[in-house]
Amino acid sequence: MTPHEADVFRARPARARSRTFGVLGMIAVGGGLGSIARYLVGSAIPAGASGFPWGTLVVNVTGCFVLGVLMVFVLQVWPPRRYVRPFLGVGFLGGYTTFSTVMVEITRLSAATAVTYAAASLAAGLAAVWCGMTIARLATRLPVRRNAQEEA
Rank of each mutant, 00 (worst) to 15 (best):
V129H: 02
V69A: 05
F65E: 06
L67S: 02
V72C: 10
Y39R: 08
A14I: 00
G55C: 09
V74E: 11
R17K: 13
R38P: 01
R38T: 00
Y96N: 00
V23P: 05
D7Y: 10
L24P: 09
A28M: 14
P46N: 12
M1N: 10
A118I: 08
R137T: 07
G30F: 01
S100N: 11
I106L: 14
T107D: 15
I45S: 02
T56C: 06
R137D: 07
V58H: 04
T2G: 12
T2C: 12
G68W: 00
A123G: 13
P80F: 10
P80V: 09
V129A: 02
G22N: 03
V23T: 04
T107Y: 15
M133K: 08
A111R: 14
S110I: 00
G48Q: 03
E151T: 08
A127E: 06
L122A: 13
A6T: 11
A11N: 11
L109K: 02
G132N: 01
F52Q: 06
P53L: 06
F21M: 09
T98M: 07
V59F: 02
G125P: 04
T134Q: 04
G31P: 04
T62A: 07
A148T: 10
A14D: 11
Q76C: 09
E5H: 10
T113H: 12
W130K: 04
V66A: 06
G68V: 01
G95M: 05
L122N: 09
N60K: 02
T116M: 11
D7G: 09
Q76Y: 13
G91N: 04
G32V: 13
